[in-house]
Amino acid sequence: MDLLIILASGVATGTVLLYATVGEAFAERSGILNLGVEGMMLIGAMAAYKTAAATGNAWLGLLVAMLAAGLISQVHAFITITLQADQVISGLALNFLATGISLVLGEGLTSLRDVVPQLPKFTIPGLAQIPWLGRVFFDNQSILVYAGFLFIPLAWYYINRTRPGLHLRAVGEYPAAADTLGIHVYFLRYFYVFVGGTLAGLAGATISLSISPGWFGALTTAGQGWIAVGLVIFAQWNPIRAAFGAYTFGALRRLVLDIQAPVLIFGLANPFYSNLNYAFFLKMLPYIFTVVFLVIGSREANRKRIGSPAALGLPYIRGQRGL
């Protein structure tokens, strides 16, 4: 059944969004909005691919990608935490900067296809035999997809059930109170911006070393970093909801690509097969759905009175009144 293959590759594609979204959720939980996800993902994708090409080791590429994206995120951290500048405009700036750096350092990588090693793919015996679900989740997936399955509950547990997670939430909700309790507000904010950066780098590396291997300049991410920023709001800063959103969007992205292939759908003529020009409207769908998700998310948040972290977007200045 073709649908299962589409869903399986949707899970793989969604893994990219999963890492980026949860990474951004970590940064925002600490009170720092980082709009540079798209740029950091590009840095990660470029660094991973370049390192793997140079050393022949995909794992080293993954490591360098996470470090490089984490490092570039500290530009945003310094400007917003220490210099107390506006987080929106600094995030936009980081995006330009990171995109530019990845384009300059990624020069010449486009032509390297087929010689660059990729991360391993394998089937999990036993689990893959589960009807339907096995084919979708456990059949010949990248190791990073499986790592994603483990990452979701761990991230949720860390944020909601551990002491460092409590500190993280405190710093984002009420930094002044956290400070009086001896929690290092500035350090933790730097740290979680770094965490967000490394996860965005991981997301980028997931693309270039595994899901759609290669370096295609700014088209490598094609706006997925921005979709991730949108998903964080839909996910209400919760890793489990983020995973739901990420896999849904992954499936949607694949559907858009794959729906043009079959001649018949459910026994009817496939309109997208006969007229390829409709594909342009299909390609709009992920972006339209992001906006729809935002509407749903904000209405739901209104109804349940779930807000963003209270100190999100605000600089913390020790000794000043306010949050």
Partner: peptide, 21 residues
Amino acid sequence: PAGIPTLIQGMIMVTLIASDF
């Protein structure tokens, strides 16, 4: 390399925001 204009634009924006301090 082709990304230079984007790079310089981004760099200028970052230093501008930092200089606001």
